[in-house]
Simulated assay, not measured.
Amino acid sequence: MRGLKDKTFLVAGGATGIGAATAKRLAAEGACVAVGDINIAGATATAEHVAGSGGRAIAVEFDLSDTRSVQHLVERTIAEFGGIHGLHNVGADLSEHNLGRDTTILDTEMDVWQRTLDVNLLGYVRTIQAVLPHLLEAGGGSIVNTSSGAALGSDPQHVAYGASKAAVNHLTRHVAVNWGTHNIRSNGVMPGLVMGETQERQNDLALQQAFLMFGKTSRLGTPDDLAAVTTFLLSEEAEWITGQVWYIGGGSHLRQ
């Protein structure tokens, strides 16, 4: 894809799943990639896979809920590659202790709300605040935030998660509106049911069957499906696309 070769992209949440697949796809297109994650073993594995395929990547341990940690990730990326041309936000707290206790508004404890918003929403605020000045200094760049189909309000559970992802959609458009004329593009992707490591481990057959019933294709999603779209949005092929949040989910939501 045009405009990726020898550019540097920061994948904030690249240890597994969509983030890892996107890091690998960006590298395959000739980009340099900084793979940040709280799961440093997974981030290292992603970076090593890139290096083994002839690409350039580093792994950096960081925590979306820690501003100093986010700043270190950005500084480490610039020190290694000389700059940043794009950001892919894909991290979220999907732990059983957090997401597993996220049910309805009457039953979800405040600590779950606080943790979910601190990571899923404010974590993206932290990365954008840290990266945006460098993109502006470089004359432009691209940001792609990972939201969720849950932002469309179809899940009767996971109220905090859905609310955090709906807020990410607004954050995405906010950046596009304010800095579009400075050559900053900001878009988002809302994955449907993607069979990454977490979904494979949970193996929720009822959820999978329900998704297939409402979908308009014959299969569930894969991390590579999202990686292809995200890489396109980060590339110069999408230079006239900004402020958009695309649902990528096999047609399970038909919407404009």
Rank of each mutant, 00 (worst) to 15 (best):
L99S: 11
S69G: 09
R68V: 13
F81S: 00
G86K: 06
A45R: 11
S53G: 15
H85W: 09
V60Q: 00
G100C: 02
D63W: 07
D93F: 04
L73R: 01
G100N: 06
V50Q: 03
D107R: 12
S95F: 07
V70C: 08
L99R: 12
G54Q: 09
H72G: 09
D93K: 03
T108L: 10
V50W: 01
H49A: 15
R68F: 10
G52P: 01
A47W: 01
L64P: 13
Q71I: 12
T103K: 12
D63V: 11
S95A: 08
D111C: 10
E96W: 09
N89E: 09
G55L: 03
S69Y: 00
S53L: 14
A59L: 06
A92F: 14
L94R: 12
L73A: 01
E48T: 14
V112E: 05
A92H: 10
V90R: 04
V70Y: 02
D66A: 11
G82T: 00
I105N: 08
A47I: 01
I105G: 06
I58F: 00
R68I: 12
T46R: 02
L64D: 10
D66H: 05
R68N: 15
V70A: 04
A51N: 12
E80K: 00
R101E: 14
R76P: 07
R68K: 15
S65E: 12
I78A: 08
A51M: 13
V90T: 15
T108S: 08
F62A: 04
F81R: 03
E96N: 11
S95H: 03
T103Q: 11
G86S: 05
A57P: 06
E80V: 03
S69P: 05
G82Y: 02
V50G: 04
D93W: 02
R56M: 12
A57F: 03
L106Q: 12
V60I: 13
L99N: 09
E61Q: 14
D63R: 10
G82V: 00
E61R: 15
D66L: 02
E75G: 13
A45I: 10
T108P: 09
E75I: 06
A59W: 00
G55W: 00
I78W: 05
I58E: 03
I78C: 13
L64I: 08
N98V: 14
F62Y: 14
L106C: 11
T103N: 11
G91E: 13
A51H: 08
